[in-house]
Simulated assay, not measured.
Amino acid sequence: MQLQLRYAATGLVLLVPNALALLRFSCSQLVVERLDPLVNPGVTGSPHLHQIIGGNAFKASMDPSSLDIPSAATCTTCTFAEDFSNYWVLYFQARNGTFKRVPQKGNVGFEQSNGGMTVYYTPVISGQGKVTAFKPGFRMIVGDPTNRQSSNVPRQLTYTCLKSPMTRDGETPDFPKQPCPYGIMVNVRFPTCWDGKTLDPPDHARHVAYPSSGTFESNGPCPASHPVKIPQLFYEVIWDTTQFNNKADWPADGSQPFVWSFGDKSGYGNHGDYVFGWKGNALQTAMDTNCNINCPQLKSQSIQQGNQCSVKAVVDETIDGWLDELPGGMPVDK
């Protein structure tokens, strides 16, 4: 089977030319709390709330020199292996200034009972050439939660206002300005070129890059500084904003009402974190054999089995219901 994915960013629509293979699978929610072992290692109560998916080895400190993630985890919320990826949380701010956490719903074919995301790993689009899977200890971040400028948003970070479950066009770098009939999809596409040496630099970003010309979808070349092609890691998350579609509850000035847990109302702070945690050579095997959606070479589990994996939150605070402020007292942009 050949699958075509339609991407768009700031008015430019790109069609993936007959992607020969990709892994597409579900990862349900592991826990929602203020921990971030990548940016704030060892801190109980990071500045903003995160939604965590993947294996249950997740904790405040995940130093790769002392923690072998696949060995430490006893379960994962993902269909395939242990994929430890941090994510952020969306809130609705009502006209009276109070906040309520926005729930999630499953993507097409992935109906999760407790939220989560769809994860893609795609090798070289043309099918010609190989990619090098991430190595143990590899970590990366794309996007910047402090960014509030549209010009600084990579074209690979977007929002889709869903008219139906299958809407895949009209992506924008900021939050949709109107109610979305089926919710808001957030899209995060990570860089696809690696320097071949560094697993996790201090900024968690300089060791990876996007193609030097063209795009991943057009099989653009990697820059000389980052010559190693790696799989494109791609997250899709559907936020069920439908219960908040009554414009009478939106701000009186007509602006959109959603805010990230890190206080961003623009949407330009869209970002994603990744901590590699696959067992052994499983991911390289999947990429080398061009697994397409299903992958018999990998051990898999049902969504229902993944939903049973969880960890207990260690930060004791209220994150649901109507709140007077964002968790952790995070201020909202004016």
Rank of each mutant, 00 (worst) to 15 (best):
residue 192 T to I: 02
residue 178 Q to S: 15
residue 180 C to G: 05
residue 186 V to N: 12
residue 173 P to F: 04
residue 178 Q to W: 04
residue 240 D to I: 02
residue 144 D to E: 15
residue 192 T to E: 09
residue 201 P to N: 05
residue 198 T to L: 04
residue 182 Y to S: 14
residue 217 E to N: 10
residue 184 I to D: 07
residue 180 C to L: 11
residue 113 S to D: 14
residue 169 D to W: 11
residue 245 N to R: 02
residue 149 Q to P: 00
residue 153 V to D: 14
residue 221 P to F: 00
residue 195 D to V: 01
residue 171 E to T: 10
residue 188 V to Y: 06
residue 138 F to P: 06
residue 183 G to H: 03
residue 221 P to E: 05
residue 244 F to K: 01
residue 150 S to N: 14
residue 181 P to D: 11
residue 155 R to N: 13
residue 170 G to M: 08
residue 240 D to C: 05
residue 232 Q to C: 04
residue 237 V to Q: 11
residue 128 Q to P: 05
residue 175 F to H: 07
residue 235 Y to I: 03
residue 110 F to M: 15
residue 170 G to E: 03
residue 118 T to P: 03
residue 172 T to A: 13
residue 196 G to M: 03
residue 110 F to S: 14
residue 152 N to H: 13
residue 152 N to I: 07
residue 216 F to T: 06
residue 157 L to I: 11
residue 129 G to A: 04
residue 178 Q to G: 04
residue 226 H to L: 00
residue 180 C to W: 10
residue 245 N to G: 08
residue 144 D to C: 07
residue 161 C to M: 12
residue 172 T to C: 03
residue 230 I to H: 10
residue 186 V to W: 06
residue 150 S to D: 11
residue 242 T to D: 12
residue 132 T to M: 10
residue 136 P to T: 09
residue 138 F to T: 08
residue 207 H to V: 00
residue 163 K to D: 14
residue 179 P to D: 06
residue 222 C to S: 09
residue 200 D to N: 13
residue 190 F to Y: 15
residue 213 S to Y: 04
residue 160 T to V: 14
residue 244 F to V: 07
residue 126 S to Y: 00
residue 230 I to L: 05
residue 214 G to H: 01
residue 189 R to W: 01
residue 117 M to D: 10
residue 117 M to C: 15
residue 235 Y to D: 08
residue 215 T to Y: 04
residue 210 Y to E: 11
residue 162 L to E: 08
residue 205 A to N: 12
residue 114 N to S: 13
residue 136 P to E: 08
residue 181 P to T: 08
residue 213 S to L: 00
residue 172 T to P: 06
residue 227 P to L: 01
residue 225 S to W: 01
residue 126 S to W: 03
residue 127 G to I: 08
residue 218 S to V: 01
residue 111 E to M: 07
residue 118 T to N: 12
